[in-house]
Amino acid sequence: MSDCIGHSAPEPVFEEPWHAQVFALTVALNEAGRFSWSDWVARFSQTLRRNGLSRELDGGADYFDAWLETLEAILAEAGNASPQEVALVRRDWEEAYLSTPHGDPVHLAG
């Protein structure tokens, strides 16, 4: 606990855009009644505990990695987004980025 103490520089609310995205996805799904916040906290804290066994989590990127891992597991179990679906659509996005000229907005092909 060294660099996390006594800091004075203002920090961004979310370090990376995808942190904001996965946070908002989770809040939106909760507000749509897909899961209760208590259930979310129970699952998320399990993931943090498990991931924290092998190394000390610093609350930065590893925190949102655990967040994403938890959300993927909940959505897979609920049948809302299977790992296969996620892998396919992830690949589509990757291809879209690789085939879009730099500077143009990236869209998924039809």
Partner: peptide
Amino acid sequence: RVKALETIL
């Protein structure tokens, strides 16, 4: 992966 989840949902 987050973009994929958002697209699917």
